[in-house]
Design a protein around this nucleic acid. Structure first.
Length: 190
DNA sequence: CCCTGATTCGC
DNA sequence: GCGAATCAGG
């Protein structure tokens, strides 16, 4: 497969939407995530720091680790100040067995009570929920998003199921609404 | 182990 | 330009 204009366009679009390289690769077909990432870099739109932020480190001490093949260059330490995520009350649904005692008719899903969540995060959730796997409780695995959607008391209930984001119990989007940076929670309404 | 992106380098 | 191999990290 080659990078036709259409494929490149889709790549840009998806990358812009925050899709992962592997997802883009699957969508495109015929390419691996490595190919996608390589292309992304060549296109110069490698922003989006998820891993170590490639910092402009002119030089200081190459320090050739005496190893035979010094492949990847050492990444500069990321001065990224992490805003300790603070779990916001977002209780995933309980087991199906509990539904009998759950007062249906109320908006019991996660939706952090009356808290306000960044519109971007909510928008992202709506966005990804459309492509959610809609897994049942039994289908959940260690690496599927366990974010519940709908009312457990009805048939219109399922779990996101998209691939979780590194260790977390939820996918990227849901981690976004489940964990709010303290700063973002502070009276955003004044 | 699963996943993520970043980088290098032979092609 | 391309992308597998590799690295680094969550």
């Amino acid at each position: 497969m080659s990078w036709t204009d259409e494929r490149v366009e889709l790549l840009k679009k998806m990358w812009g939407e925050g899709q992962s390289a592997s997802q883009i690769a699957k969508e495109l077909g015929g390419v691996t995530r490595n190919a996608v990432i390589g292309k992304v870099h060549r296109l110069g739109l490698s922003n989006r720091a998820t891993t170590t932020k490639a910092d402009a480190k002119p030089k200081a001490d190459p320090k050739p680790k005496a190893a035979p093949k010094p492949r990847a260059a050492p990444k500069a330490a990321a001065p990224k100040a992490e805003p300790k995520p603070e779990p916001v009350a977002a209780k995933p649904a309980m087991s199906a067995a509990r539904r009998a005692i759950i007062p249906a008719g109320q908006p019991l899903p996660p939706q952090p009570s009356a808290n306000e969540i960044s519109p971007e995060a909510l928008a992202k959730v709506s966005e990804i929920e459309k492509s959610a796997k809609r897994l049942s409780l039994m289908e959940l695995t260690e690496r599927t998003c366990k974010w519940p959607v709908g009312d457990p008391a009805t048939d219109d209930f399922w779990f996101c199921g998209l691939p979780v984001k590194a260790g977390k119990p939820y996918c990227e989007a849901h981690v976004g609404v489940a964990f709010q940076p303290m700063s973002a929670r502070r009276d955003r309404k004044r």
